[in-house]
């Protein structure tokens, strides 16, 4: 397989054969313009991140089904992480002897292995799950990650507050994104792009749940880091117009507000080029605490890398 000229990481050496499965020597290269043809119109997910190209290899076998390997070469590790973060379900698997700390980098379930490996997001899918196909899928996964770096998660993701005001982070709901389409897939805010999200933006959303015995109360935190403060201000105005128009009648609400709406307390708090948003908080205090914790995360993300 050829190295990517623009995405992070070295070339990936997929085996030509293993345990009864073989693949053609050449892999199929899918450029962005051809994504819709490849996915029958469903390529928006990958194009919603900073996508470079896709390499596809198909393993055939004599009676054991096929294995499809898709390597999505992204412009950064953060983008590959974002694709994995859309669904934290499945069984975490270690594909390297020295397993990187922190969140899972590979998840397996029902014949599908999904991997975040530096700038690559990989999907390896066995058409027929069996012990043999599972071994083969994992072996391909190990070949994909071999020799590749394991960067840290995006700073916004790593810095998400673990808890605020008695509400604990549900790590399995934390989704890193750049697009309102992906946001709506994780948590519906508006069909329109009222938050001004695009590929120059980085954002994370996650659910927080009450640690109290009733266990039923929850809130949603969304942190967005725009390319500059001007973009953040424009996006905040757009959000207020589209989602919280009542805040325009409140004094001193240009940069921060918490208000009660139909499904609980919602609000926002701007910090430089970042904005924290909260939805569905059960009370004002929880909303304010989550926003304050979110702003700390946004500020930490601005700090120079140590």
């Amino acid at each position: 397989m050829h190295p990517s000229p623009s995405a992070a990481g070295p070339a990936i050496g997929l085996p030509l054969s293993l345990d009864g499965w073989t693949r053609p020597a050449a892999v199929r290269r899918i450029e962005p313009a051809a994504m819709f043809e490849y996915m029958d119109g469903a390529g928006e997910l990958y194009l919603a991140y900073r996508f470079d190209h896709l390499d596809v290899a198909e393993y055939a076998s004599g009676g054991q089904g096929e294995i499809l390997v898709e390597l999505y070469w992204m412009r950064s590790s953060d983008d590959a992480y974002g694709l994995l973060s859309g669904d934290w379900g499945g069984e975490p698997v270690a594909l390297k002897e020295a397993r990187p700390a922190g969140v899972p980098r590979a998840l397996y379930g029902a014949g599908l292995l999904r991997i975040w490996s530096d700038g690559v997001y990989a999907r390896i899918l066995a058409s027929r799950e069996s012990e043999a196909s599972t071994r083969a899928v994992l072996a391909i996964g190990r070949a994909i990650v071999a020799g590749r770096a394991d960067p840290s998660p995006p700073r916004l993701a790593a810095g998400l507050p673990d808890a605020a005001a008695g509400y604990a982070l549900r790590r399995d709901t934390a989704c890193f994104l750049r697009s309102h389409l992906v946001l709506n897939s994780a948590y519906f805010v508006s069909h329109q792009n009222i938050l001004g999200l695009d590929r120059t933006v980085e954002a994370i959303t996650a659910r927080y749940e009450s640690a109290l015995p009733d266990g039923k109360r929850h809130a949603r935190l969304l942190l967005v880091r725009y390319p500059n403060p001007e973009a953040a201000r424009a996006a905040l105005v757009s959000f207020r117009e589209g989602y919280l128009p009542e805040t325009f009648s409140a004094p001193a609400s240009a940069g921060s507000a918490v208000t009660h709406i139909e499904d609980g307390w919602a609000g926002y708090r701007a910090a430089g080029r970042g904005v924290a948003f909260v939805f569905e908080a059960p009370d004002r205090e929880a909303a304010a605490s989550l926003l304050a914790a979110g702003v700390r995360t946004l500020k930490n993300a601005e700090a120079p890398h140590g």
């Binding site: 519906f188 805010v189 508006s190 069909h191 329109q192 009222i194 589209g242 989602y243 709406i261 139909e262 499904d263 939805f279």
Partner: peptide, 23 residues
């Protein structure tokens, strides 16, 4: 008029509505 559909629209319309299907 503006064509903007938000989460709030669903919540508003849901409250007190008959059983059916939605968000």
């Amino acid at each position: 008029r503006r064509g903007v559909v938000t989460r709030r629209d669903f919540v508003r319309a849901t409250t007190g509505a008959a059983v059916g299907v939605s968000l």
